[in-house]
Design a protein around this nucleic acid. Sequence first.
RNA 1: GGGCCGUUAACUCAGCUGGUAGAGUAUCUGCCUUUUAAGCAGAGAGUCGCGCGUUCGAGUCGCGCACGGCCCA
Length: 494
Amino acid sequence: MEETSEVIRKCHEKAKSMAADGLDLYPNDFKVEHTVADIREYLTENKKDIEDGGPVFILAGRVISIRRFGKAAFFHILDRTGKIQAYIQQNGVGKESYSLFKKIDRGDYVGLKGNLFQTKTGEWSLSAHEFSLVAKAIRPLPEKFHGLKDPEKRYRQRYLDLIMNRNVRDIFLKRGLIVQAFRNFLVERDYCEVETPMMQPIPGGAEAKPFKTYHNALGMELFLRIAPELYLKRLVIGGVDRVFEINRNFRNEGVSTQHNPEFTMLEFYQAYATYEDLMKLTEEMFVFVAKEVLGETTIVYQENEINLNPPWRRMTLYDALTTLGETPPEILDDKEKLTAFATEHSIPLRKSHSRGKILTKLFDVLVEPKLIQPTFITGYPTEISPLSRKSPSDPGLTDRFELFIAGREIANGFSELNDPVDQKERFLQQVADRDAGDEEAHYMDTEYIQALEYGMPPTAGEGVGIDRVVMLLTNAASIREVIFFPHLKTAQKR
RNA sequence: GGGCCGUUAACUCAGCUGGUAGAGUAUCUGCCUUUUAAGCAGAGAGUCGCGCGUUCGAGUCGCGCACGGCCCA
């Protein structure tokens, strides 16, 4: 990148002249022995007993602020665990070392050896008696007080966002903890974590448009997966009958505050369980995760307070539509009247939409935004649930639920269809839908049918949108705030 | 895909009904050994996102494009 900026040019020149003086700007021999967290821990335990500075700490980090006073200075350094103030004076480190410090800029990595003292205002700080440059920055950090705000720069240059914005760092640290908590919860219950193909010859397991790619050596088209479902169920057939995967799915659709083309999904399957069992398990799992990460089960999300304590509300799709959605009950079975009703609410429909699809479109608009507290919606029509087991009481419905929190779909689970003959018929219907113009209809997967023919135990499975859970637990309004590098268009030169 | 808003110094932002660009931070120079948005004095720094148009004159008005944000589909 061609730089015309005077400030950056001067940074480069300064570094050049330091190197010309024989200084190694990028040494590789500083041995870190402590972190800021170590110091904080030491302080909480020994604060009162520190005499003569207490023990010596050796730490390294990025300089994020400097306040100079001629022959002394205060500065803050940031490591992976947090920041701490340090103090340096010429008398303490010697003239040579101090003249090096004079050339240090915000953004540089430095190494320090020193002990603790309390400033006039009571802030525990590290008094350096040895100081060295660990890595030189030749581009200035954003402004210290206002930080980095431009959302485009925050996403494209997330490293700056992480350096400058403490809450951003916290969100992503929490994301790690959330994923770990889900994992621990399932492993504790004897689930086996697996990885299944991201590149699939037939994109299955969900209704979505896939990304296409091409394998040169095999000479074949492949699809980035839209879901791992059909592979995980193959594993259940193979006897891995408590199984889960936490990994990326890819859907070739628009981006929004709720959608990123690649997103993280937890999918898990448990043999001999039903969708009822999974609803209960889901309640326990979310309570577990919230307690692990937040220490409580009441969360504040945007303008709402959400209570995760079970039992959660349960409601059928039809009841939700007629009560919360104010849909006349008598039109639910009449596709034409439903279409008219949808049109009244300016919900665009395609001819290829089945009655069930129209119901869900209505639900999305009329009901979903109202489901703030955790709610399981059940009783989804069979025609829109091609991988779900039919309800024993009503073959037009399936043993399926979706979980909604804060007006958003968070999870989708069902008792799995394990009858290969029924499954084949469902796929055939999907193929017909596709031929009729439904681009999101499932593909026929004969190899999956073959697998089912070997016998799958009765099983229930579920998918949880991890990004959305992270949004909930970190109070993030946009999915871009919980994904390090959300997809943006390639920037043209500006 | 549509609507609204944004893009000005490295960063955060001003810039009115059109008259060739400003602040703070950062940078550079000098002073300063307990500051924490340190302070004081001085200096340098801009293709006003890109293009076309209107005008004697455009950061400002019009049109188009790019990128981003929010809302809608």
